[in-house]
Design a protein around this nucleic acid. Structure first.
Lengths: 361, 361
DNA sequence: TCCTACGTTGAGAGCGCTCTCACCTGGGAG
DNA sequence: CTCCCAGGTGAGAGCGCTCTCAACGTAGGA
């Protein structure tokens, strides 16, 4: 039966060729093979080829095979724009990265999350559109997002309290990395790490090793991760029947950590352990502790959070809480993909952390 | 004159509405306004609206105004897929990030470059597609790139020696961040930082401050940046009439730097300065130097490269070479945009570095 | 034997836009 | 006065795909 079709194909090509002569093509017509071409090549209709490409079950296996062979032979790749236009889906997902995160140095956490996301999307048809938005998202970004250019979005951020982001959730499925600090949590989806448990485990470790005056250096209160870690610290101390009053607030930077531990030392000179909400601050703390003549971990134990490369770069090496950042990215991808697929999803569980015991506590 | 047109618009809406009743729309038809709609609203043809949207000069100013008003009123955003399909341009650019770079994210350098790129693209119609490719780029990535889904590509990498990437240059404009280690350089475009001059300046600084035995710790030979830095070191020493034999190869990690400086110390115990090809290795070197009882900078001066946050985190603070990473990203964006626009471009000049003198030399 | 049902397939109408071309004006040249 | 040209405009044909619907066997039941 391919005879007639083969003729059609030839005619087609000739017509194309002569068209080329007369109408002057805007770009090389020779370019990508189309569905039409594959149809001619395999002797079926465009519709059937489309079905094969999209994995419809209602095509005879032998036809599927023939079409796939033709696709292979022609090296056919579907045209995304055409597909989008016809199906009203973009097969694109926005990856929103607040500018702050980009400049936020040395935080391999986000890089890992993004890597997890990309890994999780690998087998899907979706691609990622990188949007680095400043604190005041530009007209371009907004228009882009509202203009129906993406089917969904990831938000990778520490404090995702943007008003625009909340609205975004109404237009398309959005998955946040970390519980967003949004008023209406119900509307949006997120994957989070169990910061409370992570901190709690760290502090329990300190308690078990005999520490009796355990302070903490927290992050800014507008970052939920920081708040959660402090809560974990509190719970562990309450469970152990210890006082939980030695708190200093840092800003997640090394200098902030240094300043915070100085405050701590002056108000609670008898402290014998500090749980620090991230590694960078822990480094600052270590420095000040050394300057003040206290031995780590003999006089004061220190436990950080993140298990960043900085942790092993310190002397002594930092005991810290490792976060499953890449897993987080993967879960985010899975969640969004499910949402996009229209599946009924339930909130994914909090991801567990791991305490990495090194030299400081 | 809008009377007749207004009627048309109403009819249009009614037809749409009744269609909705009978044919059952796949998605809410109410959705985005189309060119057609804007045309009806402003009483001109679709063609004219298209001209206005694309900034054609051959439209009467008053018409332009009327159309823009309608666009504003309707909150019209052009449909990217339709535009792509018709114009055979995608208005998308691939941002290729080798996986290694993601994991190797001790390096705020890349984050800055990416930020520069996004900043440079802000005012264009193009958007970025993030493609994190493993060393063996997946089928998906390849197909995506060859499938005509992007108009151009950025490659952000240390060693861009991929064979696939070379081929990519034949299909579309590609701009590399850093001179690619490709056989046929002529075919592709890049923006690079003047590593030779950066290193040379650093070493000259050492020479001027009276150092007489200046060693270097280089990076791997397959990274052009490393090779260039070593060349700069060589040139400076030759110009100063000093011996240039004290070389140890590192791997850009802290431990690599430590090992390298140990080698250096054992073979050239009289060295009084080390130029280290990146900050991370410099940290390792500093540690070993301290362990070996040498004072920095009194006995041995150390100069790093990158001016990463790590530089200021060290004690003593590291003298190092700052790279204009964000500028590099910006230039990359400008270059690719020009290429895409069809402009005749000449290779951009090497970007100058800055020596940041701190405490180590 | 006819009718219905099902499983496959093809035809064709768009999706929203760009771009060519033909058409209209009006003004200057012949 | 006619012709031509140019700027400005609209009509209409696609771009490559999806999706509905109708048409086609073919097989089962009445």
């Amino acid at each position: 039966m391919p005879v007639q079709e083969a003729v059609t194909a030839v005619e087609d090509e000739e017509k194309t060729a002569s068209d080329t002569e007369t109408t002057v093509p805007r770009t090389k017509l020779s370019g990508a093979p189309t569905l039409e071409r594959v149809a001619a090549e395999s002797g079926v209709s465009r519709s059937t080829v489309s079905r094969v490409v999209n994995g419809s079950p209602k095509v005879r296996p032998e036809v599927v095979e023939a079409v796939n062979a033709a696709i292979e032979r022609l090296n056919y790749v579907p045209n995304r724009a055409a597909r989008s236009l016809a199906s009203r889906q973009t097969y694109a997902i926005a990856l929103l990265v607040p500018e702050r995160v980009m400049t936020f140095f040395n935080d391999p956490f986000f890089a890992s999350v993004v890597q997890g996301i990309t890994a999780g999307m690998e087998d899907s048809d979706y691609i990622l559109n990188l949007l680095v938005s400043s604190s005041d998202p530009t007209r371009k970004t907004r228009r882009y997002l509202r203009g129906g250019n993406v089917d969904g979005a990831f938000v990778v951020s520490h404090h995702a309290a943007d008003r625009d982001l909340a609205d975004l959730c109404d237009i398309m499925p959005v998955v946040f990395g970390g519980r967003p600090a949004l008023p209406d949590l119900a509307a949006c989806h997120y994957v989070d790490i169990d910061n409370v448990q992570g901190a709690r485990t760290a502090v329990e470790h300190l308690v078990v090793s005999g520490r009796r005056r355990i302070a903490t250096i927290t992050g800014p209160d507008d970052m939920l991760a920081a708040v959660d870690r402090r809560t974990g610290w509190l719970h562990a101390l309450q469970a152990a029947g210890q006082r939980a009053d030695a708190i200093a607030v840092g800003d997640f930077t090394e200098d902030g950590g240094a300043a915070a531990v100085r405050t701590l030392l002056s108000r609670w000179p008898d402290l014998d352990a500090v749980f620090v909400a991230n590694d960078l601050m822990a480094r600052g703390a270590l420095r000040v502790l050394a300057e003040s003549g206290r031995a780590v971990p003999d006089d004061v134990a220190v436990v950080g959070y993140d298990d960043s490369p900085a942790a092993t770069a310190m002397r002594p090496e930092l005991t810290t809480v490792a976060q499953p950042s890449e897993t987080m990215g993967r879960r985010m991808a899975e969640l969004l993909l499910a949402l996009l697929h229209g599946d009924e999803v339930e909130p994914p569980p909090l991801l567990p952390t791991t305490l990495v015991v090194r030299e400081t506590g």
